[in-house]
Write a protein that binds this DNA or RNA. Structure first.
Lengths: 346, 346
DNA sequence: CAATTTTTGAGGTACGTAAATCAGAATTTG
DNA sequence: CAAATTCTGATTTACGTACCTCAAAAATTG
């Protein structure tokens, strides 16, 4: 049988109350006695039964998710996953609340985080924006002992406890590597080719990192591939369509496109309308309804994806572990870059 | 507050004992009364507090993992992951036991499953072998109400409740697609190329399915790629080395290799020793120490991987859910085909 | 050494559910 | 309608931990 507090009391030769005082860090125990109790705990290999403890405390973990009220498929999906978790939350003693903030609005994010500071939840997950003000609030939250997880977009060198999202530099590198190799075929006259990059905004960290990785991988392995100046489509399908259409018209030998943000619907339309003889190799991010069908139809060649559901569930697991002071299983919480070809669509 | 059994009793106008009888399917309740209780449960949206219930029952979930005592890196890793789960098991009220069986020995597997039938655990996970006898035992286990999860290798059309492993046909297709496109570059004179396939054994379902997917993808998209007769290396590095060496010597224009089983260490050595002018494009399975370093060194071009840790944890989650009669989150339990290039190594 | 403070023990209640007992009520049977 | 049977209620204990109170013991102080 698993040892209980009663066993500790017996072995240490003290009363249950004393064991309780030691276990829960309550005052009124001499150092000697404390030592005896701790010795007994160690010798028995006692581990507190969390379920019983939570029951006794009638504890519920209250978590807050701060999400940008963006209207692209990915963010909508992220919202849905959090709502799914909320639906399941009663089963696992958690109580999850969503705070919507305007997208790309650091001030609003800071305000949301400050409001969180007041009702002291057991943990916060938020899609980070990389500004000094946001960093500063995380410090206050850290002071208040509230575990924080950065979701989807990281905030390095801050007080956040964990990042639940993909390695965007690696994602960019992978895209570059795939594009370079895929280009080898139809376009490799003498290995030279021109590729376009469509981003949302260079102000967002994820996009910057993806571009960085992409450029690095291309220049290292495919020196003869030329990358056109980045098109910033603001994650807006209409704008993306115009920009890609223009680019394809101006530069008829574009052999590849890397779309590292949202707004892929527009890009796909532009390619379909362009009607170029040899369609470019296209690599995009996020598996949505439109990228999925474009992949099936052969308009897109590969999709790099981050699984919003995994990110949300991982964030919750990590927050819970942090709230309980337990270690996280690192391998389980690594968010992976899914690579989808039309052959392995789920 | 969450409704409790006391609330149900109050609303339904019955005693706690009756509620308990209804909730736990004990006899001695008239249909009318049962109806009243169920109505109250529905109207309150009551959900049983599993933690409290398990505490009251002082329940522990006992699970059995039946694993082949194979000595390739993947199986060793799988063992380790299960042992890791055992180390963590005290925290989550589970008690996991490993039964080792000789590899590829259906009779031994059947005997192990029969032995499991006796001590009636809360669930069983096993690496399936595809024979009628194994199928038959799963029926007995089903009869006994023991949830079963097929691990790594599936047993379709059997009584197993779940499969915790990758879609091997999709994996094969993906390998074919990648190899075809990667070949485009250096070898695409006129799109013609010869590729070799190294398998463990065509008797194993996973390997058959991978080959099937691979061949299909190649013939559909790359009709000019010729696949040499399959080499069966029995997952043995030494044998694999000889076979690949021989193949490369006999057929100097091998442009690609798909290694869909184990024994990659040998294959890698063979390629390095061959010293062909233009080294073939290589796609292998399972990220191990040797495939990882070969990927870094550029000897292998892509590795398809199944994460043993995820498979084990998923199997446990599913078994627990089945034991509790709870639904599983399908998206969470889909085991993904990881595609690693040297750019996204974890 | 007496007075004070600190430490410890003993005991209880609570969390939400399971499971048991036993008496009493309702129903069915003969 | 009495007897047998089936249902139901009331109450209790237990699971492992948290948290509370009160009294007793031990240590410290003046």
């Amino acid at each position: 049988m698993k040892p209980t507090v009663h066993d500790i009391a017996k072995i240490a030769g003290v009363s249950l109350a004393t064991v309780d005082r030691v276990l829960n860090g309550r005052p009124g125990v001499r150092a000697v006695t404390k030592g005896k109790v701790e010795e007994a705990i160690a010798s028995l290999g006692y581990v507190r039964d969390l379920a019983a403890a939570n029951l006794a405390k009638s504890r519920t973990y209250s978590f807050v998710f701060i999400l940008p009220a963006n209207d692209n498929s990915f963010m909508i999906g992220l919202h849905e996953e959090v709502r799914g978790a909320i639906a399941r939350s009663s089963a696992d003693r958690s109580d999850i609340r969503i705070i919507d903030v305007p997208p790309f609005d650091a001030e609003a994010l800071v305000m949301a985080l400050e409001s969180v500071l007041l009702d002291k939840p057991a943990g916060v997950a938020f899609v980070a924006l990389d500004t000094p003000e946001v960093r500063a609030v995380t410090e206050s939250l850290k002071q208040a002992g509230i575990p924080m997880v950065a979701l989807v977009s990281d905030l390095p060198d801050s007080a956040r406890d964990h990042y639940a999202g993909i390695d965007n530099i690696a994602a960019g590198r992978t895209a570059g590597s795939l594009l370079g190799r895929f280009l080898g075929g139809p376009f490799a006259r003498d290995g030279e080719a021109t590729v376009a990059v469509l981003a949302g905004s260079m102000l967002v960290r994820d996009h910057r990192e993806r571009l960085e990785g992409f450029s690095a991988a291309i220049s290292e392995a495919f020196p003869n591939i030329y990358i056109l100046p980045v098109l910033e489509g603001r994650d807006d399908p209409a704008l993306a369509e115009t920009m890609i259409s223009d680019a394809l018209r101006r530069n008829r030998d574009i052999a590849g496109i890397y779309s590292l943000g949202a707004g892929n619907r527009g890009m796909i339309r532009a390619i379909q309308k362009a009607g170029v003889a040899r369609r470019p190799i296209v690599i995009a991010h996020e598996l949505t309804a439109s990228t999925r069908s474009a992949l099936s139809d052969g308009v897109i060649d590969a999709v790099l994806n981050q699984d919003a559901g995994h990110e949300v569930r991982s964030a919750i697991r990590v927050l819970k572990a942090k709230a309980d002071g337990l270690p996280v299983i690192a391998a389980q919480e690594r968010i992976r870059i899914d690579i989808f070809l039309k052959d392995n669509l789920p």
